[in-house]
Design a protein around this nucleic acid. Structure first.
Length: 737
RNA sequence: GGGCGAUUAGCUCAGUUGGCUAGAGCAACCCGUUUACACCGGGUAGGUCGGGGGUUCGAAUCCCUCAUCGCCCACCA
């Protein structure tokens, strides 16, 4: 090696090797303690009175491993967090995982199924042990993977939605809502999943198009249409619109005798405005136990409700000779019988309609009337401790109104803003939230019964004779508390006082309703404040042809695998650049490869600068720049200013692209190339000026790129001869104010 | 039924508030390896910015309309 370059680390003579350095660098950060804002203050890298920036990690489900969607989330959040940390803010990013009740339980059930074990064989306690064990293993994998992506999370504050602290939060929340009359137990129509044997919320339903038959049946003097003859056994009400002239001769409450599936019955005429006169014959019979529209009609007119189908999707004795049959097989047979009796008017063979299925089990939902726990979203209550703008303390509001108000009044800002429309549309149609689940894994409902008494509390009653409600809570109940339960609420902890409300919530647009809306509900109600100021929504990562990644297509890109191959920095850049907020992106290995080259380019740029500046002292505020170099500095400042603005406005894709372009096609291709000329032919003033320019530019570039490509920039920073104290780039100051 | 988005080079996509000859990566073709980098440099080719209409001094960008594709929501029996 050249004597003048003896300070150049030998590793610069080889291409940049991410696998050899990334783990070491992460360790360096972790051991510095600087992921934790308290440590930053202690070490004097952050001012104790500095502005705070806080964000919670959307907790990944402990159902297995991280996928590319998680990688996008981690990349975006880490960029923003590192940026704010370098801006000198007290920056906190709280990690955690989600127990994901139904998802995790059914995953374990599937594993047990292979060993021919049913959860009933194990019993509740044993089964939960198995699930917890699985959850722990998933957790460990996930944490490890999260670190590989370079995420600068404060691990000392890690939380789990099902741990002890969060249980206190959940129970406190439940009790408060119960006491305020916002949680009630009622016999209401719910979405029953016959396969999963549990209720699910409206949002866990996936509608699938199905082509089936639509039957027109003679019902006394009427003709009724149905796709589900198997529910018709108990139908003894026939409903029509009060203004339908075709049926003017029939009066509300009038009874008629008619022949039906299993013999003669008495039917009652009901007039209700919810009937669509245009649809079919304008007449329908109702099945209040198994249809929510029918249920509401029955409620309005105070009608009887009868159960026809049991929890397993089989017909009950009311079906007479069909009792015990599965609905699918019964359907054809019932039609056969009706046809024999001459009651089938006609059949439409190509009837296309949407059927409701359960997201997890894919089973067809059977609405049932069941005793379940609900959150009332319309009931008015007096809000306590309101810190919300436009909502006074003790003002009467409903949960729905709170959810609408904070977004409408811009206290919460959604990026991209077109999702605000989607948000309002969802809330406007929001019905009471069914929060009880008939599964074992999760927060058991904090309600105890003793004969006719009921007790709701954070702790179980101490006297004997009380039994706890068997059901568990919808997993989104606990994740709805996430922004403050992670900070120690309901205790008035320092973290809670210092870091809530959080500044940003970054997540996929697919859980806007599930999660974002629920956090807004919980936080405004329980804390009297918004959970976060901004919501940034990212899209889905698809394969290079724009298809969803799936096991069956074999097009899954495993973020860990490509990180090992090309480096986490390259993966991060490829997930960021060219992807605007809220839009889906296409990912390919080629794209990642291109950014791996970028990391290497930066590596070699650094080598060139270090080699050529070994003979000058590093001067931060060198002032004797040549006119040409002054121009370069100005344009560089301009770029950095734009990049800063882009990051502030969550345009990471632009910020990343600008830096990429500047570093490669401006700094390397033009500035470095012309420097060679200057070093050969320039005056000594020009040479000194240019050397200082290169050194100062490199430090600025490394700083500005650090949020995007933290590993390679830190690795170079650690090897800079000027960094004699081995300071850590992660906590250096951002190059532009 | 209601709402939202997309349509730009062979492929995958940028183009932030309307403004310099519309860009990037990959692919193709040509030239180049004397000391930062072949995980490289220089260059070439390739686009009537989905169709049509409008606003404007000026439109890929704003408005209207049509077409195709995609997504979300919804209790039409």
């Amino acid at each position: 090696m050249d004597k003048a370059n003896e300070h150049l680390d030998e590793k610069f003579l080889k291409p940049y090797d991410p696998t050899a350095t990334e783990d070491e660098i992460y360790k360096l950060w972790e051991e510095s303690g600087f992921f934790n804002p308290d440590e930053c203050i202690k070490a004097g890298v952050t001012d104790k009175d500095a502005e705070k920036f806080s964000i919670v990690l959307p907790p990944p489900n402990v159902t297995g491993t991280l996928h590319i969607g998680h990688a996008v989330m981690l990349a975006i959040e880490d960029i923003i967090v590192r940026y704010h940390r370098m801006k000198g803010k007290r920056t906190l990013w709280v990690p955690g995982t989600d127990h994901a009740a139904i998802a995790t339980q059914s995953k374990v059930e599937k594993i047990l199924e292979k060993e021919k074990i049913r959860k009933q064989d194990l019993g509740r306690e044993e089964f939960i042990k198995k699930v917890s064990q699985f959850a722990q293993e998933s957790h460990d994998t996930i944490i490890n993977q999260t670190k590989k992506m370079g995420s600068s999370l404060d691990w000392s504050r890690e939380a789990f939605t099902l741990d002890k602290t969060r249980e206190v939060a959940v129970r406190t929340a439940f009790k408060k809502m119960y006491d305020d009359g916002l949680i009630y137990r009622g016999d209401r129509i719910v979405n029953w999943d016959p396969k999963g044997q549990t209720t699910i919320s409206d949002d866990e339903i996936v509608r699938k198009e199905e082509k089936g038959k639509f039957y027109y049946l003679k019902y006394g003097p009427f003709v009724i249409g149905t796709a589900r003859p198997e529910t018709k056994f108990g139908d003894k009400y026939v409903v029509m619109h009060p203004e339908d002239k075709r049926y003017a001769e029939y009066k509300d409450g009038q009874t008629i005798e008619l022949e039906w599936i299993n013999g003669p019955i008495t039917a009652t005429i009901i007039k209700d405005e919810s009937v669509d006169m245009e649809f079919g014959t304008g007449v329908m019979t109702i099945t209040p136990w198994h249809d929510s529209t029918d249920f509401e009609i029955a409620e309005r007119h105070n009608l009887d409700k009868e159960q026809i189908i049991d929890k397993y999707g089989k017909l009950l004795p009311i079906a007479g000779e069909f009792a015990g049959m599965k609905i699918r097989e019964a359907r054809e047979k019932i039609i056969e019988k009706l046809a024999q009796k001459g009651l089938v008017e006609k059949t439409d063979e190509n009837y296309v309609h949407n059927i409701a299925t359960a997201e997890r089990t894919e089973a067809v939902i059977e609405p049932q009337i069941m005793r379940q726990w609900f959150i009332d979203v319309n009931r008015k209550f007096k809000i306590k401790n309101s810190k919300l703008k436009g909502i006074k303390n003790e003002q009467e509001v409903s949960l729905k109104e709170l959810m609408q108000h904070v977004v409408r009044s811009n206290q919460i800002n959604i990026v991209p803003d077109r999702f605000e429309k989607t948000y309002f549309q969802w809330i406007d149609n929001l019905r009471d939230w069914c929060i009880s689940r008939q599964i074992w894994y999760g927060h058991q409902i904090p309600v105890w019964y003793k004969e006719n008494e009921i007790y709701v509390g954070v702790e179980a009653p101490t006297e004997s004779g009380w039994t706890q409600d068997e059901d568990t809570l919808d997993t989104w109940f606990s994740s709805g508390l996430w922004t403050f339960s992670t900070l120690g609420w309901p205790e008035e902890t320092n973290d809670f006082k210092n870091y809530h409300p959080t500044d940003l919530l970054e997540t996929g647009y697919d859980i806007l309703f599930f999660w974002v809306a629920r956090m807004i509900l919980m936080s405004t109600y329980l804390v009297g404040d918004i959970p976060f100021k901004s919501v940034y929504l990212h899209g889905l990562v698809r394969d290079e042809k724009g298809r969803k990644m799936s096991k069956s297509l074999g097009n899954i890109i495993d973020p860990l695998e490509v990180s090992e191959k090309y480096g986490a920095d390259a993966v991060r850049l490829s997930l960021i650049i060219g992807v605007g907020p809220g839009s889906d992106s296409n990912m390919s290995e080629n794209k990642i490869k291109a950014y791996k080259k970028f990391a290497n380019k930066l590596w070699n740029i650094s080598r060139f600068v270090i080699e050529n500046t070994s003979d000058i002292e590093y001067t931060k505020d060198f002032s004797a720049y040549s006119p040409a170099d002054k121009t370069i500095i100005d344009s560089q400042k301009e770029i950095l200013k734009e990049v800063t603005e882009d990051i502030e406005n969550y345009r990471l894709y632009l910020a990343g692209e600008k830096l990429y372009h500047y570093v490669w096609h401006e700094f390397a291709d033009i500035i470095l190339e012309e420097s060679k000329n200057i070093f050969e032919k320039g005056t000594s003033e020009e040479i000194i000026s240019r050397k200082n320019l290169l050194l100062n530019s490199l430090t600025n570039i490394l700083k500005a790129l650090h949020p995007f490509t933290p590993f390679v920039t830190e690795e170079i920073w650690q090897s800079l001869p000027q960094n004699k104290e081995k300071n850590i780039l992660m906590v250096e100051k951002w190059p532009i104010v």
